[in-house]
Each structure stands twice: as structure tokens, then as C-alpha cells.
Write a protein that binds this DNA or RNA. Structure first.
Length: 429
RNA sequence: GCCGCCGUAGCUCAAUUGGCAGAGCGCCCGCCUGUUAAGCGGAUGGUUCCAGGUUCAAGUCCUGGCGGCGGCGCCA
């Protein structure tokens, strides 16, 4: 089995190695052949000369197609002429799995790439993005664990939504209708009454036909919920968390970040405190920029862009009108037209990363808000029930993982950070 | 849901006012011992998205449909 990875070759200068990898590029020069080989760890050039490896292995190498898997044996040498400064001088060659003609090439357009996503994932760029995504999740989990949060596992099949307006995907459940989860929040609110501080990392589904660079119908939702956190604690946690993962990514994988299009120094600069404006202040800023909004309106794409395009760190927009937000958010005791909440907006119009709030923990207040919103209390009975038995004040938030990574890597489209993106028009492959 | 754009060779795209269906790249063949998406020569390759219509003649114009992308709205 494969024991050697390309990444490790730089420590084997002068040694003879046997490497199994994919054929990434092929350049022929008569009796000299270059193969650029690729594995999960990187690429390396192999040079194959007829007079050094013999006629039959050479001819086999010449016949190999792009994306075939091959095993080469040879000595690792430093050579300034090679793309990465080192190459393998091949003395023996074997083809393990000959590829048919690969449908994708350098100038392939978006539609064909998306149709062949299962093959496009072999690109170095998408491979690097998948690695960055892995690291991001590692650092997020690190942050929660250091702060003694418990990871929990809420259901994906649910009976009711929690985001009021959002559209749910429904499916048949032995004759009943259930829905794919759009948020684990309500379940986390049950778990914080035993574990106190929890987080969950789950798929969430939104059936809206949104076609923008920041929407997919299936995304990975990181949700936090904590007893005895007020809204201020909640916002502080959010900015510390975002800062932590930016620092870690820049420190540990600056080269990866740079290659994908973001200067690691940009991420290094993302430290608390983040910028903060209240909703009312945000409307004033927009008015100064010539954008007139009705009080109570949600912020649109143009508004978010105007507020964040010049920023070097995320911006909290907090204390929103209750009419613009869901029923479970705690009303501001100073003025019950507002809720104790925050939206965290990424710079450069990369959109909303986080929505969070303090939650209503009082039974009567919750029932009243559900009635005000003309919702059916019966659908939320267990959730309301939680407020009867030792109900702790608490706060929490939900983070769109893909949006966070899209901003951190400065990518054009959210589908780039997902191996098999689902949009209203695409669910294959 | 609304608005816009696109659909021609395996891929990326041309095709003048409606007048013979083209190029580059890839695949295949040949040459080439230092290439970096190598280069040079040759050959192959077409249901012009689908269905109607107008016309002597439609890739091009008209009607309808299908598919995709971009923007807005909605949302994380």
C-alpha cells in the first residue's frame, strides 16, 4: 500500500523512492518525458529518459493518459529546472490504473465543471479549499472545547421550523409530514438545561429559491447555545471565536490561504473588538450614504455592502426591531420594540456570517410572543414546556460555516467551499 | 418569485445584412533530451439545445419549451 506522499519528498533528496500518484500533466520531448504527478499532499515532476529507464518502461510512460495512477521508482534530486525545485529521475515505471480521456481541461467552463463536479474535485484549487475547510472546523472545535462546551447531536428530521419565514423541505414519514432541519437551535435550548454550554455542527436546509453567491439549499450550520450568557456575553464569544480561527488559519496555513487568494496578514488583523453599530445607527449610516430605509426593514444586499465594503474586520449590527426578527428573541427591557440580538456581517459584502440573540426564558413572555406572531403554540409545546422547569437565561447563535470560509479565503461563490453544492437548480452530482 | 444573459466539434469560442459550418485547445499519428498549460507538422471531429413557423435559403428572424449562469428579493 501507498506509504510515501509527495509532501515528504523534499526530505528524501538523493534517495531512491517509489511513488504512487495521479498523472496531473504530461509533456513529451522525444526520448525525454515529463510527468507532473499529483497526490493528496501536492505535486512533483518526474523526468523519464529512455536511456535511463529502458525502452519498455519508457514506452509505457509515453502511453499513459492524464489522471491515470502510476508508480514511479527513481532518485529524488534537486534541479532548478523542475517546477518545485525537485524532481524524481525515473528508473522504473508502472501504470496501475489507466484513465480514459478526462472530460475536463484547463479552459473548461463553469457549466461543464459543475456537471462533472465529481471529477473537478481533483483540481488542486478545490483540493486546497477542502483542506482549508477541514482546518477551519478543527479550529472551531478547538475553540469550543477550550471553553468547555459540549458537542451535541440534534435531529435532522423535525416537525417545525424556528425561522418563521424560511421555507422547509418536507418529506413523507410513514404517512406523516416531517421537515429537514433548518436550525438545531430549539433542540440546543433543551440541552443547555443539562449541559449548560453546547454546540452542534449539522447540515441545515433552506428551500428558498435564492440564487446568489452566498446561498445554497444545504449548508453546514454551526450553532452555539449557552446558559447564563446574556447578549453581551454572546457577542464577545462570537468575536473571540472568529478571531481565534482567523489567527490559527493564518499561523498554521498561511501558504494555503495565500494560494487561495487571501493575504494571511489580513486574517492576522482580525482581532477583537469587532466594529459595532446598533440597528438604528446602521440606518443613520445608510442614510448618510444616500440609502433611505424604513425603520423595521431588514437589511438587503446593497445595504450590507454599503456598511461593510471598506471594513477590515466584521461588523456587528445589534439591537434590531422585534418585527424584523423571530419570536424567540428576548425583548430589550429598556424598550420592548427592540430585541437583544446581533447579526455579524463580514467585510467586503461577504454577507451575514452569524445571527445570534439572547432567548426568551420566561414562560409568559414566550407564549405572548408566539401569539403576537400568530404562530401555533401547539407546534412548539415541548419548547414552551422547557420554560416551566428551571428555565435559565441563555443566548446562542448560528454560523454559516461556508460563508465564514468564503470570506476568510475571499472566494467568489459559496459553492466553491462545498464538495457537492446543492442549489435550487442543481442537486447532481 | 422577478429581471437579464447564454446554449454551435470532447472543451473554449467565431461565423458580416438571412447566403458553402470555422478556429484554437484536447484526443489520435509523426518529429523533438529540460519542459513548466512546452513546441512544430498532420489527421479526425457537427441533431448549431428541442418543437413549430417565416423564407428560394435559418446557427442567424418569429413563437413556444428545456437547460444553465448572473443580478435582485428572501435568508445563514
Amino acid at each position: 500500500m501507498k506509504k510515501l506522499y509527495i509532501q515528504g519528498l523534499k526530505n528524501k533528496i538523493g534517495q531512491t523512492v517509489e511513488l504512487t500518484a495521479w498523472v496531473h500533466r504530461k509533456r513529451t520531448h522525444g526520448s525525454l518525458l515529463f510527468l507532473v504527478l499529483r497526490d493528496s499532499s501536492g505535486t512533483v515532476q518526474a523526468s523519464i529518459k529512455k536511456d535511463q529507464c529502458g525502452e519498455e518502461p519508457f514506452n509505457n510512460a509515453c502511453a499513459v493518459t492524464l489522471e491515470s495512477i502510476v508508480t514511479v521508482k527513481g532518485v529524488v534530486v534537486e534541479d532548478r529546472r523542475a517546477p518545485a525545485g525537485i524532481e524524481i529521475r525515473v528508473s522504473n515505471f508502472n501504470s496501475l490504473s489507466l484513465s480514459e480521456e478526462f472530460p475536463l481541461q484547463e479552459d473548461t467552463g463553469l457549466e461543464v465543471l459543475l456537471d462533472h463536479r465529481h471529477l473537478h474535485l481533483r483540481s488542486i484549487r478545490l483540493t486546497n479549499i477542502m483542506k482549508a475547510r477541514h482546518y477551519l472546523l478543527q479550529y472551531l472545535r478547538e475553540f469550543f472545547i477550550k471553553d468547555t462546551f459540549w458537542e451535541v447531536y440534534p435531529p435532522i428530521l423535525t416537525v417545525a421550523g424556528c425561522e418563521g419565514g424560511s421555507t422547509l423541505f418536507s418529506l413523507d414519514y410513514y404517512g406523516d409530514t416531517v421537515y429537514l432541519s433548518q436550525s438545531a437551535q430549539l433542540y440546543l435550548e433543551a440541552l443547555i438545561l443539562s449541559l449548560e454550554k453546547v454546540y452542534a455542527f449539522t447540515p441545515s436546509f433552506r428551500a428558498e429559491k435564492s440564487r446568489t453567491p452566498k446561498h445554497v439549499t444545504e449548508y453546514w450550520h454551526l450553532e452555539q447555545e449557552a446558559s447564563f450568557y446574556d447578549n453581551e456575553d454572546n457577542m464577545t464569544f462570537q468575536e473571540n471565536m472568529i478571531s481565534y480561527v482567523c489567527q490559527r488559519m493564518a499561523d498554521q496555513h498561511g501558504d494555503l490561504v495565500r494560494e487561495l487568494g487571501r493575504d494571511p496578514d489580513y486574517l492576522k488583523n482580525v482581532k477583537p473588538p469587532f466594529y459595532r453599530v446598533t440597528y438604528d445607527e446602521a440606518l443613520e449610516r445608510l442614510a448618510d450614504a444616500g440609502i433611505e430605509k424604513e425603520w423595521g426593514d431588514d437589511l438587503g444586499t446593497e445595504d450590507e455592502f454599503a456598511l461593510t465594503e471598506e471594513l477590515d474586520k466584521p461588523l456587528f449590527v445589534w439591537r434590531w426591531p422585534k418585527t424584523a426578527k423571530p419570536f424567540y428573541m428576548k425583548l430589550d427591557p429598556q424598550n420592548e420594540e427592540y430585541v437583544l440580538n446581533d447579526d455579524l456581517l463580514a467585510p467586503e459584502g461577504h454577507s451575514e456570517l452569524i445571527g445570534g440573540s439572547q432567548r426568551i426564558h420566561d414562560y409568559d413572555e414566550l407564549v405572548q410572543r408566539i401569539e403576537e406572531e400568530h404562530m401555533d403554540p401547539a407546534a412548539y409545546q415541548w419548547y414552551i414546556d422547557l420554560r416551566k422547569y428551571g428555565s435559565a437565561p441563555h443566548s446562542g447563535f448560528g454560523l454559516g460555516t461556508e460563508r465564514l470560509l468564503k470570506w476568510m479565503l475571499n472566494l467568489e461563490h459559496i459553492r466553491d467551499v462545498i464538495p457537492f453544492p446543492r442549489t435550487p437548480r442543481r442537486y447532481y452530482p
